[in-house]
Simulated scan of single mutants.
Amino acid sequence: MHHRTGMAALVAALALTGCSSSQGSSDKSSDNKQSALSDEWIPKLETATTTEDPICNEVGDQACAEHLTGIALLMTDLREAIDEAGGLDAYPRTVREIAKIDEAVEACTEHECLADENAGNAGSPCPDDVYTIRSGGDVLPFALQVDELKGN
């Protein structure tokens, strides 16, 4: 669980540095839409990123590939929900985190990391790609919350 604590500290630090906004929202329907987005997506993100057993200790194994694929697919759905709820203007931190995950997913594909028994070998870029996807998934609930707090 110390991994989540580190991510929470990172998100808090990001919120304190250069993220002030003078834009307040007096539109109650906008506030409700944003609140509902967080309410809906944080549980989905936590479900997608939390596992009972250690996963991706072996970067190229099938269980890791399935776990990462689930996170990547969820990013597509979350991106669509954000677009409907105000897009980049409403969720800048969340959109940036999704972009980092998307880049890592593309790199994983390019490096042929998924279901490759050699993906975890020394010198392979795959462990870094996997870490970016997994840690990004852990950061997203915090990014959503910060975006919603800054937007209200």
Rank of each mutant, 00 (worst) to 15 (best):
A65N: 00
W41R: 02
E46F: 06
Q34H: 11
L73H: 13
A48K: 00
M75C: 06
E84F: 05
G60D: 12
D83F: 11
G86K: 03
E66M: 03
C56R: 08
L45H: 01
I82R: 12
D53M: 15
A65E: 05
A48R: 00
N57D: 13
D53L: 06
T76W: 05
I55Q: 12
P43K: 02
D53G: 13
C56K: 02
W41H: 04
G86D: 10
A85G: 12
L74I: 07
L73V: 14
D61M: 01
T49W: 01
Q62R: 12
I71V: 06
T76P: 14
A48S: 07
Q62C: 07
L78F: 04
P43L: 01
E84V: 09
A81V: 13
T49M: 00
E80T: 10
E58D: 14
L73D: 15
R79H: 11
H67P: 09
T50W: 00
E52N: 04
I55M: 06
K44W: 04
I82N: 14
A65V: 02
E52P: 01
K33I: 06
T49E: 05
E46N: 14
T50G: 00
D39K: 09
E52H: 02
L68V: 14
K33D: 15
K33G: 01
T49N: 04
E40F: 05
T76A: 07
G86F: 01
D53R: 09
L73W: 01
A72S: 08
G86I: 00
A72V: 00
A72Y: 02
G70K: 00
Q34G: 15
G86N: 11
L68A: 09
E80G: 02
I42A: 02
R79N: 14
L68H: 03
L45T: 00
P43A: 08
T47R: 07
R79L: 06
L74N: 07
S35K: 11
